[in-house]
């Protein structure tokens, strides 16, 4: 990967545009061999109201690649680590499968991969990003809910979005400093 300590990858989500089509979920499965029944990303659907006054909202979620990732902090072997560009990954060879990181993730973003017998989660498609491509879920999304980029780069669309729009993050109280930004 190109070493630039100054980089910080984040994802901005415009949930209002999410149509719950699951393209991102399936794309991730294909790109990252996610086992059946396990998910690196998912859509939180909320439906409410009474006929005919109804509401539904869809919020995509995945690993938040936290600024202070509690998963990394608790990992006894250092298998969970954070790259200079903020991407949080699991080094398979070092993971003993103690699942402490799973317990420690406020977003339940991690799962135990029965096939590899180690803990698994969203990697922001680091392997694609390192080739200069977008994460699979971002590239495939029909309604462009997802914008990925380097927040330190003023030319990056994420930068522009966060400058120009109001947004929120999930569970800020955990102090993890999540890096998925949800536009309001």
């Amino acid at each position: 990967m190109s070493k630039t300590a100054s980089r910080r990858y984040v994802m901005v989500l415009d949930s209002r545009k999410c149509i719950d089509c699951k393209a991102c979920v399936v794309a991730c499965k294909a790109e990252n061999d996610v086992p059946l029944g396990r998910f690196r990303n998912w859509i939180n659907a909320e439906r409410s109201g009474f006929y005919p006054r109804l509401r539904a909202s869809f919020d995509p979620e995945q690993c938040h690649h936290c600024e202070n990732p509690s998963c990394v902090r608790v990992c006894p072997t250092g298998a969970s680590f954070q790259r200079e560009d903020g991407i949080v990954e699991v080094r398979e060879a070092d993971c003993i499968g103690c699942k402490y990181c799973m317990v420690a993730c406020p977003y339940n973003a991690r799962f135990f991969n029965e096939e590899t017998q180690v803990v698994d989660k969203c990697t922001f498609c680091a392997h694609r990003v390192d080739r200069g491509e977008l994460p699979a879920c971002v590239e495939t999304c029909p309604s462009r809910v997802r914008t990925f980029g380097d927040i330190t780069d003023p030319k990056s669309p994420v930068h522009a979005l966060l400058e120009g729009r109001r947004y929120r993050v999930l569970k800020p109280q955990t102090g993890n400093g999540p890096q998925l930004y949800y536009l309001l």
């Binding site: 006894p76 250092g78 003993i96 499968g97 103690c98 180690v118």
Partner: peptide, 24 residues
């Protein structure tokens, strides 16, 4: 452990941030 034969890795490192590392 998911990979019990790797448990030695617990002792290949010491991570004072990680209660489990200290605990081990």
């Amino acid at each position: 452990l998911g990979k019990w034969w790797r448990f030695w890795k617990l002792f290949a490192t010491f991570r004072w941030e990680s209660p489990m590392s200290i605990g081990s």
